[in-house]
Computed example of a mutant assay.
Amino acid sequence: MFFSRKLEAFMAVVENGSLSKAARVMNRTTPPVAKSIKDFEAVLGKRLFKREKFGMSLTQEGLELYNDLKSLYLQEKEITKKHISGIINNSIHVYYDWGKSQYLTQFYQAANKNYSHINIMRFSRENFEEIPDYDGNTLILSSDKIISEKFSLLHKIENKHLGICCQKTLVNNVNNNIDRLLSENIWLCDPALYKTAKIKKLESEIGNRGKAVCVRIMDDLNCCLRFIQTHHSLLLTDENPLKSEYEADLCFIPLTQPEIQYSCYIYKSKYHSSVLNRFLDLIDKME
């Protein structure tokens, strides 16, 4: 490291929330890390942390210092890695739970424009804690709020709607009655979407009217589109997937009930690398 061990200890304690966790990350024992923090506070003449029962939190002066240093510190780590290993990190990693293909397409386009590499992967609530940070190069697109020590909220896209994609004849057969459409046809649903409270609530509402819903779990959009062209099934999705003329016999109907609205939360690594900076303006404009 080009920076001092004192600063490294400071950043590790901020990131991990306690001396013991920071020590494990740094492959050191707790007393040397505690001494580094004490010496760092003595050099600066400031109290940087509040010692609490279950860990350590920043004072206002510590928070100001962290905000000033976090980007510079991560850039220093990148520079160190580059000169030691000769490897330049030019990748970002995007995790999403379901849907959101319109945002993922924008990320692909931005990566191509910025000569960056992008890895896009699925995650579920059950394995969220297993998502690695990748040295500050990670973004998460989630339909629900998440609490994490590694990631912070960057942007929130509000009032998004789910919708139904199906054959036009199915809609005509029920005279545009959406309740009948939902109750009389099979639902095709992304596995992660089907687990959400919104879909469960919609399913329960239909069931309470005396008609049990039949759901088939399918997570490939193109497969679903081909399937609904020949079957009496409804694709539940978060955007209009109809892009070409051969899909002219299909239609898309937004579900505008307030209880079906959802938000897309975009999280980033708590302190991010320089490569992630290339995507921040794009994220701020997403809607």
Rank of each mutant, 00 (worst) to 15 (best):
G207V: 07
M218K: 13
S142H: 06
D238K: 00
E203F: 04
T169Q: 15
T256N: 01
C264V: 13
G163H: 02
G210A: 04
E239T: 11
S263N: 09
L141V: 02
E203V: 11
P191I: 12
K160N: 12
L250C: 07
L225H: 04
K150F: 06
Q229R: 12
L255T: 00
R180A: 14
I147D: 12
L162Q: 02
F227Q: 13
I164N: 00
A192K: 09
L236A: 06
D220K: 11
I178M: 13
L235V: 05
S244M: 05
L154M: 10
E184A: 15
Q261R: 08
I140A: 02
P258D: 09
I217T: 14
C189W: 06
Q167D: 06
Y246A: 08
N176Q: 11
K168E: 11
K145T: 09
N222L: 11
V213A: 12
I157C: 01
L255F: 00
A197I: 11
S204N: 14
P254M: 00
N175L: 10
C189H: 06
L225N: 08
D179M: 14
Y246P: 08
D249M: 09
I146P: 03
S152I: 12
N173K: 14
I157D: 02
C223I: 13
E247Y: 11
I199W: 04
C224H: 09
I217V: 15
L242Y: 00
L153H: 03
G207T: 14
E149V: 03
H155A: 08
F252S: 03
V174F: 01
K200M: 11
E205N: 11
I147Y: 10
L188W: 08
P191V: 11
L202W: 06
D220L: 09
F227Y: 15
F252M: 04
K160V: 01
L181N: 05
Q257K: 06
E245M: 07
S244R: 07
S233L: 04
P241M: 07
M218Y: 12
A192L: 12
I228K: 04
F227N: 15
C166V: 05
E247R: 02
H155P: 05
I164M: 01
L154D: 07
I228D: 08
K211M: 11
C165R: 00
H232F: 12
T237Q: 05
R216Q: 13
E259H: 13
I186V: 15
L234S: 01
D249S: 15
T256W: 00
Y265Q: 01
F151N: 01
E259S: 13
Y246F: 10
N177G: 03
K150M: 01
A197C: 05
V171D: 02
L182I: 07
N173M: 02
D190M: 10
I157P: 03
Q257Y: 07
C223H: 12
H232I: 04
V174M: 02
K168S: 08
I164G: 00
L154S: 08
W187A: 03
Y194V: 06
K145G: 07
L242Q: 02
E239H: 15
Q257L: 02
L234P: 05
I186G: 03
K243C: 08
K268L: 01
S244K: 11
R216L: 14
G207Y: 10
K201L: 15
L162K: 01
V213Y: 09
A248V: 07
V213E: 06
L235I: 05
L193C: 10
C223M: 11
I178R: 05
K243V: 09
N176G: 05
D179R: 10
P241Y: 07
D249R: 08
V215S: 08
